[in-house]
């Protein structure tokens, strides 16, 4: 890791967690930089909470390391130094549930003391953080009388109470109504603007995409995409032309290669990945291109000139970030489906 990357405050290196034969998190490597919001996005069971738990040392990685910046240097997180290293981090892992008959003041005083916050300053700090989430009037009320949204806010506040520079929040918006979600988003942005770094997990695309600087998409324990919002959005906004041939060719791979050779010069896509895919579930070919009308017309002309017996083609569809997310997280399931259908597709007579 280059030494000049001093804005990296936490670095995950080949982080892997196995439970017996099951791999919950597989070889995650990523850096979190000072002052940004990183969204860890993935479906339920993708490995988000396990990753968070390894950062908080609630789970020991099977393989890999967590490095945390302390006094200007990145230090390897171990059981021996976790007390000092994790003190600078505020954690909210899984659903925040409180003792119903306790008050926010009692709970937050306890948490602040546990984290070594200066005792004399604790009352003022509690008032400050409760004001931040609009719970000042509830400081001495029993938590049992709180709504779910209020409890969620109190959960975030409990991670903030010792004024950490870095927050790790696991699904802070889950189960909340739209109004409460918006309030949490506003709060997280406010925290970011006050200089906090936030590592946030969620299965809700909108909640993450609205506030994150960078998004890591995790599926089946692996990071399948990690980029800035701008790059991910650019990547997701490709267009797809779907064509159907009269018969399904016996050698699909050969047909794909032929199609690729014909349309690639006009696709306007520069990266090296394949631009033609065969969808077994719909028995159609999908051609990825830049969405321009000119290229669309040229591709169709070239296809009609060729000996491909195209009987149907769709209006190009522009993808969204949501499509990209769905595609990425569905990959494992679709992969299995493709294997299954490949066995079922009858060999066509050409």
């Amino acid at each position: 890791m280059p030494k000049d990357e001093t804005d990296i405050i936490i670095s995950l290196r080949n982080l892997t967690k196995r439970f017996g034969d099951f791999t919950a998190v597989n070889d995650i490597t990523m850096d979190v930089r000072r002052g940004e919001i990183i969204g860890l996005l993935g479906p339920n069971g993708a490995g988000k909470t396990t990753t968070m738990k390894m950062i908080s040392r609630l789970l020991k990685p099977t393989v890999g390391e967590v490095w945390i910046r302390e006094n200007g240097e990145l230090e390897l997180l171990t059981n021996r130094n976790k007390d000092s290293l994790l003190d600078k981090i505020g954690f909210l892992i899984e659903n925040p549930t409180f003792y119903d008959h306790m008050t926010p003041k009692q709970i937050l005083t306890y948490f602040a003391t546990l984290k070594g916050y200066t005792r004399k300053k604790i009352p003022a700090r509690i008032e400050e953080v409760l004001a931040m989430v609009g719970l000042s009037a509830w400081i001495n009320k029993k938590v049992g009388t709180f709504s779910k949204g209020m409890k969620q806010k109190l959960g975030i506040v409990s991670a903030l109470i010792h004024d950490p520079d870095f927050l790790v929040l696991d699904e802070p918006q889950t189960g909340l109504d739209p109004k409460a979600r918006r309030e949490i988003r506003a709060l997280l942005l406010k925290l970011k603007h006050s200089g906090k770094t936030i590592f946030l997990s969620s299965h809700l695309l909108y909640e993450v995409s609205e506030i994150s600087d960078r998004i890591a998409i995790i599926n089946l324990g692996q990071i399948v995409a990690y980029n800035t919002m701008e790059n991910l959005e650019a990547e997701s906004k490709d267009s797809r032309l779907v064509i159907q041939l009269e018969t399904i060719p016996s050698d699909i791979e050969q047909k794909k290669a032929q199609l690729e050779a014909i349309v690639r010069p006009y696709a306007g896509v520069n990266n090296g990945s394949n631009i033609v895919e065969f969808r077994y579930e719909t028995r159609t070919f999908e051609i990825r291109f830049d969405g321009s009308i000119k290229n669309q017309k040229t591709i169709l002309k070239e296809l009609t000139k060729s000996d491909f017996d195209v009987i149907n083609f769709s209006v190009p569809r522009t993808n969204s970030l949501e499509d990209l997310y769905i595609n990425l997280v569905s990959e494992g399931a679709i992969g299995k489906l493709e294997d299954q259908m490949q066995e079922e597709v009858p060999v066509a007579m050409e």
Partner: peptide
């Protein structure tokens, strides 16, 4: 599930 908030504090 009240333990969720206690660790790793």
């Amino acid at each position: 599930q009240t333990g969720n908030l206690l660790f790793p504090k």
